[in-house]
């Protein structure tokens, strides 16, 4: 397995009183994830923390397909635990979390996600989204009703159709991608891409080391007003 440079940061932003985002980096098994909690204080932050704790305890089998299974199983288990917790502690109040996780192998990786937190890959100056939002607006984009640019500014852009804790049965999506030397990956919550344009993300992601890059993304989101919590993880394979 390759070695990795990475930097994970989360910030409550300018307008929110609490941070309901959470991040996790487990470089020993090449797993990174961002979770964006929903439900307000002591629900949203607990939800995202439950997701992150579950992923942090995943054991990596030798076979990559079983690694994907293990991550999915952890999320399915936390989905049940979260719904149970919400029923007992919040009597039906909404409690849930998005999740986007990057799993890496030798020259390839997988993205596992539910909701609208995203994974991007920057390759040769071009930013490519690897995840596809589980949202009403994304459905309209898939149906050809909206363009990607129109979707970003759509009033229902924040309405998601899938989340951990959102339904009795959680179904996560999985996609595969290749990893080349020089690639840089960005996991982020919607607090980032709702504040920064794709051009700004592309430009910032391509500059400096991973620490400087992650801090710069957070700083720019705050400079733009950061209406939501902001979380980023910048990852790149170590040059061998």
């Amino acid at each position: 397995m390759a070695d990795w440079h990475f930097c994970a940061l989360t910030d409550q932003g300018v307008r929110r009183k609490h941070n309901e985002d959470a991040v996790v980096a487990v470089p020993g098994i090449a797993l990174w994830a961002v979770a964006d909690g929903m439900g307000g204080h002591e629900a949203g932050d607990v939800a995202s923390r439950m997701v992150i704790d579950a992923l942090a305890s995943v054991k990596r089998p030798d076979n990559f397909s079983l690694f994907v299974d293990a991550v999915e199983a952890a999320l399915v288990a936390v989905n049940a635990a979260m719904r149970d917790h919400a029923g007992k502690e919040f009597s039906g109040r909404t409690m849930g979390s998005t999740v986007v996780a990057m799993l890496a192998g030798k020259g390839y990786g997988a993205c596992v996600w539910a909701g609208d937190s995203r994974l991007y890959r920057l390759r040769e100056g071009s930013l490519e989204p690897l995840s596809r939002d589980h949202s009403q607006v994304q459905r309209l984009v898939d149906a050809g009703v909206l363009s990607e640019e129109e979707a970003d500014s759509h009033p229902n852009a924040n309405v998601i159709t899938r989340a951990v804790g959102g339904a009795a049965a959680l179904v996560v999506d999985v996609v595969m991608f290749d990893i080349l030397p020089g690639d840089r990956f960005l996991l982020c919550s919607d607090g980032l891409y709702n504040e920064l344009s794709r051009e700004e993300i592309t430009q910032t992601l391509g500059q400096g080391g991973v620490e400087q890059c992650a801090q710069s993304l957070i700083d720019q989101a705050i400079h733009h007003g950061a209406r939501d919590n902001v979380s980023v993880i910048v990852i790149e394979p170590e040059a061998s």
Partner: peptide
Amino acid sequence: FRRCRRELVCAWTGEAVPEIDQALPAE
């Protein structure tokens, strides 16, 4: 679903498809 996904992922990674008893005992 999981058997088919393992086959697709292994076809991509070049790994052998794991035996079913190696697989995680899920739901």
